[in-house]
Design a protein around this nucleic acid. Structure first.
Length: 448
RNA sequence: GCUCCCAUCGUCUAGUUGGUUAGGACACGGCCCUCUCAAGGCUGAAACACGGGUUCGAGUCCCGUUGGGAGUACCA
């Protein structure tokens, strides 16, 4: 490694969502910068005025912030910037780009065509890219047409601005998708003509869909925002992304980001493309979710439940009751997005009963058992889970039935659902009044 | 078409300079636990794409085939 400070960059164009592939490119740039104690720069390549949108721009900021990928230099959502090598919006760097084009023009490396565009003369020879991940790859530039670096309308193209800005900003490692590998020999020529020293390159493999095709912005589950909306945890998404093309080689899967930063080396990144496996991300999210305390989940849960209409929008509800309910539901969850269906009945008394479960458990015997439980709970002094469990056990013994014969109908009566948190804890949290009322309501279903 | 890249269970991957019962994880099956569902424990099935070499010995090296991916813009 050279002794110069590492500077990596993520250079998205604000023309769509921050997609998973882009997020991983940003992540690997960020990891390399953090691992080496270098700097991570954000540069917004907003030169395609026709397709740029402020919404897309905002979503990139949101996505990076949500993932925890902080940048040392670059534009900020409020319009300002961090760092003094800016501007970091490519559209504001026109003077720099123009100067580079003029320089190439005057040195004879580029020429103005009859159509008004400026083209860079590509040499008729081979160029070898030395890549940190791909090794040495040689391309023959002979069959290629000269590279357009400035359009007829005067605007510079991607190849020019990308190269010039990386040079200007002192980027030491260009870490980008492998789809740019074949562009690199052209960029090398451009840099040489500019009389500059090229950065080091690391082309990372692409992320493919489950079916093996390239993941595009239009695909389901391709955007970072979707995962945030569905209740995924950023730590889980980041951890999962780290493992796509990189591994700690010690069989561990759940890795705190601090450890990844410590171990991450570009040289260890795989060559082959990787498919995105939602099942594994889902599992990983559960792993992280289970590590969270009620306190940590509460704000997110309240937000999701409020948006789902389970909690009142005015925030006026019994917060202690909510927290108690959340506590017993939490161990069952893998995804915060599942919260509404797991918790709606805590805050609504007029719920329906799961049809299939009702047929199975709201039988003559079921109703009889409901009555028995209701009578016991009405007079139970100690409303603790232990005491409640004892009630069920005693009923099972005295009536020579399985505990399940009481548990299932009661759960259905109290929540309308066939599954849920530990019933004894559920009864405690709901409290005597609610339980008795709900049991009574369920008994109205009984044939007269 | 042409150029470049890649190739271990369905998926993500580990596999030191060639010698492994080819390891882990997700998903899937079974068992245990159990008030349901998860979680957890145990367990099962599951891979070196194919064909040639080199070698005493190849998942590891070489060549070819097949398959997959990327690029081939006045888009980034």
């Amino acid at each position: 490694m050279s002794d110069t400070l590492v500077r990596t960059r993520f250079a998205p164009s604000p023309t769509g969502l921050l997609h998973i592939g882009g997020a991983r490119t940003a992540l690997f740039n960020w990891l390399h910068a953090r691992h080496t104690g270098g700097q991570f720069v954000l540069r917004v390549e907003d030169t395609d005025a026709a397709r740029n949108t402020p919404e897309a721009r905002a979503r990139i900021f949101e996505g990076l912030e949500w993932l925890g990928l902080d940048w040392d230099e670059g534009p900020l959502p409020d319009g300002g910037q961090r760092g003094d090598r800016g501007p970091y919006n490519q559209s504001e760097r026109r003077a720099i780009h123009d100067a580079a084009v003029e320089k190439l023009l005057s040195s004879g490396h580029a020429y103005a065509g009859e159509d008004g565009a400026v083209r860079f003369k590509l040499p008729n020879e081979e160029r070898t890219v030395r890549d940190l991940i791909c090794g040495e790859v040689t391309f023959d530039l002979t069959p290629l047409a000269d590279l357009t670096i400035r359009r007829a309308d005067g605007s510079p193209t991607f190849h020019l601005v990308n190269v010039v800005d990386d040079l200007e900003m002192g980027i030491t490692e260009v870490i980008r998708g492998e789809d740019h590998l074949s562009n690199t020999p052209k960029h090398l020529c451009l840099i040489e003509a500019l009389g500059a020293t090229p950065p080091r390159y690391a082309h990372i493999p692409l992320i493919l869909n489950t079916n093996g095709s390239k993941m595009s912005k239009r695909d389901q589950g391709a955007s970072v925002g979707e995962y945030a909306d569905r209740g995924y945890l950023p730590q889980a998404v980041v951890n999962y992304l780290c493992l796509l093309g990189w591994s700690p080689k010690d069989n561990r899967e759940i890795l705190p980001i601090a450890e990844v930063i410590q171990m991450f080396r570009l040289e260890d990144i795989n060559r082959g493309n990787a498919r995105f496996d939602l099942d594994k991300l889902f599992w990983m999210n559960g792993e992280y979710f289970r590590q969270l305390s009620v306190e940590e989940v509460e704000p997110m849960a309240a937000d999701i439940l409020t948006r789902a209409g389970v909690l009142p929008a005015d925030g006026k509800y019994d917060h202690l009751y909510f927290r108690a309910a959340l506590e017993i539901v939490l161990p069952k969850l893998k995804l915060a997005g599942e919260l509404p269906e797991w918790m709606d009945f805590f805050f609504a008394d007029e719920f329906g009963y799961d049809e299939k479960a009702a047929r199975k458990h709201f039988t003559a015997q079921g109703f009889e058992n409901l009555r028995a439980v209701k009578a016991e709970l009405a007079g139970l002094a100690d409303f603790s889970p232990e005491a409640i469990e004892a009630v069920f056990k005693a009923l099972a013994v005295s009536t020579e039935q399985k505990i399940a014969a009481f548990v299932h109908p009661v759960r259905l009566a109290l929540s309308g659902k066939p599954v849920g948190p530990s019933l004894y804890h559920l009864i405690e949290v709901l409290g005597r009044e609610r339980c008795l009322a709900r049991l009574e309501r369920a008994l109205e279903q009984a044939p007269a």
